[in-house]
Amino acid sequence: MKRSSGARLCSTAAIGVLSFSLLTACSDEGSKDTSDSKASSSAASSSAPAAKALTTAELEKLLLAQGEVKGYKVASGDDTLPSSKSKVKTDKPACDPLAWATAALAPGDTDANAGNAVSEDKLSAATAKPTDLADAFDIDMTYVGLSSYAGDGAEKAMKAVSDGVAACAGGYGLKADGESTEVTRTAAEKGAAKGDETVAFASDVSMEGEGTATFHTAVVRKGNTVATFYTVNFAAMAKGGEMGAVPAAVIDAQVAKLK
């Protein structure tokens, strides 16, 4: 399907289980120069130890697990998310952090990254079974990514996302797994204040001549860990139009687990 192909690229995450295909900073070395000079001038005014990045294994333990968000199912992102940033590229380097954030990849400069998928559980005991196939696909699935940074890398990652929203307001080209699509517009949104810092944005994506679809992304920093959230509704994606906002329950539960 042309439409589902375009959606795969806009989210840059392959959703094979549903036969649908679908988003820093510099290193922390610069911050060390300043802290070192302050330490040399006075031992009493030495700054606090620089934050240490968590490992990928540690981040995986912080990802939401099944049963931690009422009304939602949690699945591994191994089969649905791109394995590396090299598979997700834009035609404007400033837009790369936005594309990475939608693919549950680190928006900043780090190798410590983990991701999974959290979806509405519409087949729970408290919910009636869907009446048809279209009903079954009318669910919100949120791709969650965690990344960790040393020093002030997390703050720089957030700035890269914020700067990217402004720089990519007119859109950008996106290429994933050899296929291309077009993000026609990016705009900042007022996201709920979470963690230490939040950046939210909307992206309009071309559906290959059949209109556009609008997707929403939230990026939250807590300490030196950055969480990214990107939500897709399969039924809405097939029709084009507006996707739902990132569920507050998913953001709240994930941020609460961060150190």
Rank of each mutant, 00 (worst) to 15 (best):
K2C: 10
I15S: 13
V17N: 12
L18R: 07
S21Q: 15
S21W: 15
L23R: 13
A25I: 14
E29R: 07
E29I: 13
G30D: 12
G30V: 11
S31R: 07
D33I: 14
D33W: 13
T34Y: 14
S35M: 15
A39R: 07
A39E: 11
S42T: 06
A43E: 09
S47P: 04
A50P: 04
A51K: 10
T55K: 01
T55D: 04
L62C: 05
V69L: 00
Y72D: 01
K73L: 04
S83R: 13
V88R: 09
A94W: 00
C95T: 05
L98Y: 05
A101Y: 06
T102W: 12
A103E: 01
D109H: 07
N113G: 07
N116Y: 03
E120R: 04
K129P: 02
P130H: 06
L133T: 13
A136P: 00
I139Q: 06
M141R: 06
E155N: 13
K156T: 07
D163R: 06
D163Y: 06
G164C: 06
C168H: 07
A169R: 00
A169M: 00
Y172F: 09
G173V: 15
K175G: 09
K175C: 05
T186W: 03
A192F: 08
D196P: 08
E197N: 14
T198C: 03
F201G: 07
A202H: 08
D204A: 14
M207D: 09
M207I: 13
E208M: 13
G211W: 00
G211P: 01
V219W: 03
V220K: 03
R221P: 02
R221V: 04
R221F: 03
K222L: 01
V226R: 05
V226W: 03
Y230T: 12
M237R: 11
A238M: 10
K239Q: 14
E242L: 06
Q254E: 02
